[in-house]
Amino acid sequence: MSEELHPSVAGAQPYMREERQGSGTTDEPLFESDEGRERLEKIRSRYPSARPALLPLLNYAQEKNGWVSTRAMEEIAGALDLTPACVHSVATFYTMYNKRPVGRYLIQVCTNISCHLNRGDDVLERFLEETGTRPGETSENGLFTVVEAECLGACGFATVVQINEDYVENVTPEKVPDIVDALWARAEGRDA
């Protein structure tokens, strides 16, 4: 990103980029770097009080580490003058905060009504089979976590699957092996 990040969008950066998933277990401090402090300040400048920065900062924790550890919650609590308990309460309310590390590819399969009507349940089954995992569990190689998702807001393109940040639409069970193969290839390509 060459251009400077405008404060209006500082809290709205996509955060599930694949590169960041790395080992999946990093837990870097958030506000010890200049970049982190700058992000904190930019985000805070958009609200009349500290607390509204909470969701953007939890998002930032995911951007940095791919998940939100209790340590990160404490760090954020400190930055916003909240209790860690209060951050924990908020973080557990929202389903997108990974309270433990997830695989390099977080595969979320919508099985809600429109996708359900278009074999979403079978798509989910197929992803679990292909990755050899159970829902929410990360594959042994650390690559895949498959979860059932609620409506992803793309119902006309059912079945909808979100892989990290990307939407993959019109997925049928038959297409699943190719999708998983492509992810394998991507992962190996980088690892090599």
């Binding site: 404060p7 939890l58 997108m96």
Partner: peptide, 11 residues
């Protein structure tokens, strides 16, 4: 001013 604020998974 306008600020983009991102949620985190809650209908």
């Amino acid at each position: 001013d306008l600020t983009v604020h991102v949620g985190a998974g809650a209908y």
